[in-house]
């Protein structure tokens, strides 16, 4: 949204500095910077962009990294109040502390969305490819460390450091280990046992662009039932990816993805509370096309990127994960990863 829209004198994007894989960070999207503290991006009528960010001592780093002028300060709300007036478009006002609302109380505010992105840029896709390679390499390395006796947190520590050693600037990671597959969560002190099902969401970022791969590994032999169930979610992933073409809706992708599972009698397990979503956008910038759900009617465009993950609970096999970063192309969704999805046995 520019100031030309709705006769705005200023546009302000706010962020609280608590970076989230689940939400668009407009400050990052507009400036290329992850701030340590609260931040505001001010866009003037002439299109000039200024970054206000806390703390003041981070100024040198911000000025080095930002694509715009920077004012590093300890009171972003106060500095914002001194710089904008009149009719102001503002995004993110409800998701920062209320002192920002007080700072803008003399202005006429027009609420704007924080996320207006669509397809990923060439730079974002290039970063996503690098992140995908990091995720795959780190996962392959991790398979060698999966053995009884190692604690979940030790495993994730090694994975996390390996991901960052390969060049990731951040990492969203969840895991679980249990005799029957379980939902992923933060790592605990539980030690792996023979026969455990280990589920992993591995989501590194390069230049602030995240991707996610979802994997399941078994400590030992997987068994016929588990392999058959996993083959179903691999088929679901392929069906969903094939449907991810320009002009299709997200809901249509989900319908295609769910079809093999519904045909196998798992319709009940294809909805909450057994699943949350079938995938999601990838931040830190735009999360477009949003959560991959049966009720998302967003129309896909070429170049959109998202995680597609038919992570699924089965009555006998528990919860298992399978997910890849997908780019929408005219030929359907193409994974940024290279290996064929499959259940790993260690």
């Amino acid at each position: 949204m520019s100031t030309a829209d709705a006769a705005l004198e200023w546009v302000v994007h706010l962020h609280d500095g608590v970076h989230s894989y689940l939400e668009c960070n407009p400050v990052f999207a507009l400036t290329g910077v992850r701030t340590i503290g609260e931040a505001a991006v001010i866009v003037g009528r002439d299109g000039a962009i200024t970054l206000l960010a806390a703390p003041a001592c981070d100024g040198a780093r911000l000025r080095e990294l930002a694509s715009c002028p920077v004012l590093a300060c300890d009171d972003v709300a106060g500095e914002l109040a001194a710089r904008v007036s009149g009719r102001v478009g503002v995004a993110g006002l409800d998701d920062v502390a209320s002192r920002f609302r007080r700072a803008l109380e003399a202005c006429t505010l027009v609420r704007l969305p924080s996320d207006t992105g669509r397809a990923k840029s060439d730079d974002e896709l290039a970063a996503a490819r690098r992140a995908s390679a990091i995720a795959e390499q780190a996962y392959d390395e991790l398979l060698g460390a999966l053995r009884p006796g190692v604690a979940e947190y030790e495993l994730i520590a090694r994975l996390d450091v390996d991901v960052r050693r390969r060049g990731a600037d951040d990492h969203f990671v969840l895991c679980s280990s249990s005799p029957i597959g379980d939902n992923v969560r933060a790592p605990t002190a539980r030690r792996l046992e023979p026969g455990d099902v280990v589920n992993l969401e591995i989501s590194p970022s390069v230049d602030g662009q995240f991707i996610q791969i979802c994997r399941t590994a078994v400590l030992g032999r997987a068994g016929v039932r588990r392999r058959a169930d996993y083959a179903l979610i691999v088929a679901a992933l392929a069906a969903g990816a094939a449907a991810a073409r320009p002009g299709a809706t997200v809901a249509q992708v989900v319908a295609a993805l769910d079809a093999p599972l519904i045909d196998a009698g798992l319709a009940e397990y294809c909805r909450p509370p057994h699943i949350r979503v079938r995938g999601h956008g990838q931040g830190l910038a735009s999360l477009s096309p949003g959560d991959i759900t049966f009720d998302n009617d967003t129309v896909l465009e070429e170049g959109m990127m998202f995680t597609l993950h038919p992570n699924q609970r089965f009555p006998d096999s528990g919860y298992m994960l399978c997910g890849e970063p997908i780019v929408v192309t005219a030929a359907g969704g193409v994974a940024l990863t290279h290996r064929q999805p499959g259940l790993d046995e260690c």
Partner: peptide, 14 residues
């Protein structure tokens, strides 16, 4: 702590 916040706290959790 005034450091860059990671997207998730991912150490030992209990």
């Amino acid at each position: 702590m005034l450091t860059l916040h990671p997207v998730v706290l991912r150490g030992r959790t209990e």
